[in-house]
Design a protein around this nucleic acid. Structure first.
Length: 557
RNA sequence: GCGCCCGUAGCUCAGUGGAUAGAGCGCUGGCCUCCGGAGCCAGGUGCGUAGGUUCGAUUCCUACCGGGCGUACCA
């Protein structure tokens, strides 16, 4: 358990004991202790921890909150809690002020745990799957995919650090309508490039990248497909093109720092009969009806607005049918929790997907869908116009060329998925102070520079007197360092990776403040040793956080 | 029309059922004979509107206003 959680739990326990004691003495009456908050107050003047328990007990105890607080304090045993003094404030808050002793225990722990610092066993090895990006393999990765990639990968890192057993998965939509359409587009481009004057399908993929793909295929096979039957020709073209497109997607994601554990093909669900079987199961359970020649899933039974087609009147299952089979498959593989990261334009899909999960026999609360709002790019203060239809959009690969991997990942993760993201390209590529990515990395580089300048090995922590660290800036920095394990768990279980980006920035900020007010390489030998250890702990913490975000931790910039 | 998300400082965004609502950018003024000035310190008019629940609401609920998205036998 982390030191902060440990301290918190001890105080919580003593609060409960104090209340029971007060009741035993007849000072207080209450049925049960309500679920109270023991939080770090916003204001430092309000102590290290504060609780609202006295206000919550007013009804049960039939006493004013401050009176309840007094009884609690009178019965509170400070032993083994690090609590130095207690004050009652405001409408009835009880503020706990801690001594600094517990903070000094943090530094040796960080240095000892090193790359593992921040990790915890909170998740108990529970199996969690995170499915993200899952872009159509008919094109290149765009900004929405990029945001999903950064969010999904960072969230996966956080879950792992919090002790979950994480599987990162990419669902390949290599079947269905859009592949049909893809085939038609490829064929049209192929024939056009071979000199035939034929129209391009209106609903086809207009992007330039498809022409390039077909050119590459022609370079390999020439006119071999020309005399072929159209169906066979499309099949060949699709196969070749998918190979290329998936390869490109895989490369771009790898360059973005994202490595998947599983690439799951939709086509395999068709081939194995899993989809047919799932539909049959739903039919047997009475969740399917026929209308106008199509099979419909009764998603309205599960709170959806309207029912949804699973098999079209032409006999071909819809994407939704495949998705049901896919999610059934996920749970069959033993994932306790399944997390999907989708663009907000898919939000209408959430209710029926959860309904479907329930229909195939699993608790829909085990499926979590993170909806992320769309991304707008700005360059020179102007919106960069994009159109998927015309195939004109900035790709992930181009973004990395322009602003670099680190800046791109940080910008995508620093906002809540709920917020519409305005991505300022000029800011992201600025190699200057206004760029928040550099701010954090600079702190890390600066630390390494100090350690190098110290010219000595770090002293063994047993020989260091940490109580010499008494400056406000030092204590605040240690406090922040101590928070990492709880920050990781909080960001992971709430599925809010942007919290950790913020933490990184706050930590860097406290380090910079410390640097400006305390000289590390001072003449005072013992103080110098203590500060070197503090700096090293800050280095470890910053580096670990940067890695969680998928960013490099440069030693020089 | 109905459904989901959002409305917080000039701009981009954090944040919480509580005690004085924050950060970055931009703007102004300071700070290195010294460990990296890509840094530090100081400076502020803001929770869309109106009700409700509560000891307490920016946070929860309702209505309204404004923006985004969805509402296909597309994915």
């Amino acid at each position: 358990m982390s030191i902060v959680s440990n301290v918190r739990e001890k105080i919580r326990l003593q609060i409960e004991k104090a209340l029971e004691e007060a009741r035993a003495k007849g000072a207080l009456t209450f049925e049960s202790i309500p679920n109270f908050v023991l939080e770090v107050p916003r204001e430092k003047a309000h102590g290290d921890f504060a609780t609202n328990i006295a206000m919550l007990l007013t009804k049960q105890a039939k006493l004013p909150p401050r009176v309840i607080a007094e009884h609690l304090v009178a019965n509170f045993s400070k032993e083994a809690t690090w609590v130095d003094r207690i004050e009652i404030a405001g409408p009835g808050f009880i503020n706990f002020y801690l001594g600094t002793g517990w903070l000094y225990a943090v530094l040796p722990k960080v240095i000892k745990e090193d790359t593992a610092y921040g990790n915890s066993t909170y998740g108990n090895g529970e199996k969690v799957q995170v499915e993200f990006v899952s872009a159509n393999p008919t094109g290149l990765l765009h900004m929405g995919n990029a945001r999903g990639a950064a969010l999904g990968d960072t969230l996966s890192n956080l879950l792992e650090a919090a002790g979950f057993d994480v599987t990162r998965e990419f669902y390949i939509n290599d079947a269905g309508n859009q592949i049909e359409n893809f085939g038609k587009s490829l064929e049209a481009r192929y024939l056009q490039l071979m000199g035939e004057d034929i129209p391009f399908p209106e609903e086809g993929y207009h992007g330039e990248d498809i022409i390039t793909t077909v050119k590459n295929i022609i370079a390999e096979v020439g006119d071999k497909y020309l005399p072929m039957d159209s169906a066979l020709r499309r099949e060949f073209l699709i196969q070749k093109a998918l190979e290329e497109k998936l390869g490109a997607i895989r490369n771009d994601l790898a360059r973005f720092g994202v490595e998947y554990d599983v690439w799951f093909s939709e086509q395999t669900l068709h081939d194995s009969g899993a989809i047919a079987q799932t539909i049959k199961e739903l039919q047997e359970k009475g969740y399917i009806y026929e209308k106008e020649g199509a099979l419909w899933f009764k998603s309205t039974l599960f709170g959806d607005e309207k029912d949804e087609v699973v098999v079209r009147s032409n006999g071909i299952p819809t994407y939704f049918a495949a998705d049901i089979a896919y999610h059934k498959n996920k749970f069959e593989r033993g994932f306790q929790k399944v997390i999907n990261i989708w663009g907000a334009d898919h939000h209408g899909h959430v209710a029926r997907m959860k309904g479907a999960v329930k229909a195939v026999g699993y608790d829909p609360d085990r499926l979590h869908v993170i909806l992320m709002q769309l991304v707008r790019l700005f360059r020179g203060g102007e919106i960069v116009r994009m159109s998927k239809r015309s195939g004109q959009y900035v790709t992930l690969s181009e973004l990395m060329d322009e602003v670099g991997k680190d800046a791109a990942r940080y910008f995508f993760v620093m906002r809540s998925p709920d917020s519409h993201l305005d991505f300022d390209l000029d800011l992201a590529k600025a190699e200057s102070s206004e760029n928040p990515v550099y701010y954090v990395q600079y702190a890390h580089a600066r630390i390494n520079s100090i350690l190098k300048a110290s010219g000595t090995e770090l002293p063994p922590v047993e020989n260091v007197d940490f109580t010499l660290l008494k400056e406000e800036a030092e204590l605040e920095l240690i406090r922040k360092i101590a928070d990492l394990p709880e920050e990781i768990v909080g960001a992971a279980v709430n599925m809010e990776p942007h919290r950790i980006a913020r933490y990184a920035h706050d930590l860097a900020s406290l380090f910079h403040s410390f640097y400006n007010s305390c000289r590390v390489l001072t003449e005072e030998e013992e103080l110098r040793k203590a500060r070197l250890c503090l700096v090293d702990a800050a280095r470890i913490t910053l580096r670990n956080v940067l890695h969680l975000l998928g960013l490099s931790a440069p030693e020089r910039m």
